[in-house]
Amino acid sequence: MLRFAHIELLWGLALIPVFVLLFAGVSRWKTKAVKSLGDRNVVNLMIPDVSFSRPWLKFILFSIAFAFLLIAAADPQIGSKMEEEKRKSADLMILLDVSNSMLSQDLAPNRLENAKRAIAQLIENLHGDRIGIIVFAGEAYVQMPITTDYSAAKLFLNTINTNMVPTQGTAIGTAIDLGMKSFDFKNGTGKAMIIITDGENHEDDAVAAAKNAAEKDVSVHVIGVGSPEGAPIPIFENGRQIGFHTDSAGKNVVSKLNEAMGKEIAAAGGGSYVRATNANSGLGIVMDQIYKIQRKTVDTKSFKDFEDRFQIFLAIAFLLLVIEFFISNRKSQRLSNLKLFEVKKT
C-alpha cells in the first residue's frame, strides 16, 4: 500500500505547466529577437556557438528533477506489514424526510436544517462505522451509498433540500425498503436505520416495512421532528419566504408531529423512538442504543508499518540536476564539425 506522509505538497506539481508556459514564452521571444537581426544564415555565422535546443533539454531535466523533489518531500511510504485486527463496527443508514412539511419552523431554524445539523454532529463522532443517507418524500432516493468517507458524507449532507424529491408525500415504507437493498449483508457488521421525520406517513405501510427489517436483524429507530401542536408550512421563492401553504378554504396548512406513527414504526422495527427538541436532537440517545445492541466485532486487515521511500526520488532528482548542470548552452564543436551527411566535392 502506498501513501504520502505530506500529500498536500503534491499540489506543487501544478506549477510545472506554469513553468512550461513561461519558458515557452521566453524562448519564443528570443527566437523573434534573433530573427529581427537579419537573415538567419548570417545571424548563425555571427553566433555560431549558440544552441537553441539545449536550453529546452536543460529545462526538461530541471522540470523532471523538480517533480521528483516534490514527490520526495511528500515522503512516499510503502506499507510493509499487514495485520489483522478485530474492531466493533456498524452500518448506519440515515433516512431523512425532505417533504415540504420539514420546512415548518417549530424547531429552529426549521425541522430539516435542525436534522441536518444533528446528522453532521453524528458524522463528526463516528469512528470506523459506515454511514449512508437516503432522502425521501413521496419517493425515496439514495443520496449517498454507505461509506466510511466522512468528508464526503458531510458534503452530500450539505446539498440536501426539499426540492430534490419531485414527488411530495412521506413514503417511509419505501425508504425503509430502499435502505434494506443498500446494505451489504455479507460483511458481518451490525446494521441499523435511523428515520428522521415528522411522521406524517400517507403513502405506504411503514410499519410492515420496519417489521420486515427487524426480522433480518436490522433495527429501525425513529426520531420525530416537530411538535404535536404543529406549525404552518412556509413557501419560499428565490430564497425568500412569501407566505404559507393553504388549504382549499384558504387557511394555513398546519403540519403536526405524528408521534403515534413514529412510535409504532420503531416498535415494529425493534428500535427506539425519540422526539427531537431544540436542545436535544435525539441522535445521541439512539446511537447509544445502536452501539449497545447492533455493533458487531468484525475482522479487518490494515497496514501497520510503513517504510519511507523518499530516498529513491531524491537520488533521481539529484542525478538529473547534476546532468543539467554539466550541459552547456553552447553547441558542441565536435558535433558541429561532424558532418555525416555532407557529400565531399571531388
Rank of each mutant, 00 (worst) to 15 (best):
T31E: 14
A137E: 00
E124I: 12
D205L: 07
L70Y: 01
S63R: 08
N161V: 08
G138L: 07
S151Y: 15
E237Y: 13
V322Y: 05
H221Y: 12
N41M: 13
A153R: 00
E8G: 12
A33H: 10
N161L: 06
T174E: 08
D305A: 13
Q77M: 09
L69N: 00
L155C: 07
L112S: 03
Y291P: 03
G190D: 01
L9E: 03
V218P: 01
F68K: 04
G282W: 01
E139R: 12
N337F: 09
D91M: 04
P76R: 00
W11D: 12
F52H: 11
D288A: 11
I119M: 05
S281P: 07
D205C: 10
F68S: 00
G199M: 01
K304I: 15
K344Y: 11
W56H: 13
I196A: 00
E324L: 05
T159I: 10
L95M: 10
A214H: 08
V343C: 10
F326E: 05
N337Y: 09
E124P: 06
V207N: 00
Y150H: 05
S272F: 03
N161Y: 06
A73K: 02
M261L: 11
D308F: 11
Q105P: 03
R40A: 15
H221C: 01
Y291I: 07
Y141H: 10
K154H: 08
V322S: 06
V135R: 00
V274R: 01
V135T: 07
P232T: 02
E307H: 11
V18A: 13
F4M: 03
A214Y: 06
A231G: 01
V42A: 14
K116H: 09
G12T: 07
F62W: 10
E83K: 11
R330I: 06
V254Y: 01
S104R: 00
N252A: 15
V18I: 15
D91R: 01
K86I: 10
F66V: 07
K86N: 14
S227M: 10
G38H: 06
A73R: 03
I176F: 04
F306W: 08
L15S: 14
N258S: 08
S281M: 07
D308Y: 11
I7F: 14
S99P: 03
G169M: 05
E85S: 14
K251P: 09
K86D: 11
Q241Y: 07
T297A: 14
L122W: 00
L319I: 15
E229H: 08
Q333A: 13
G282L: 02
G12C: 09
F185S: 12
E84P: 03
A90W: 03
M180N: 02
L22E: 08
K86T: 14
G224A: 07
L126S: 04
G38F: 04
N329W: 07
L283D: 00
S27D: 15
S63E: 13
E83Y: 08
D247G: 09
N41F: 12
A260N: 11
G188M: 05
S332D: 15
A249M: 12
K30A: 11
P48T: 02
K181W: 08
D97T: 00
E324V: 04
E85C: 11
I64D: 00
E85L: 13
V343A: 14
K296A: 06
P234W: 01
R28C: 14
N280C: 10
E84R: 12
G79T: 06
H221S: 02
S89H: 04
S328L: 10
L321G: 03
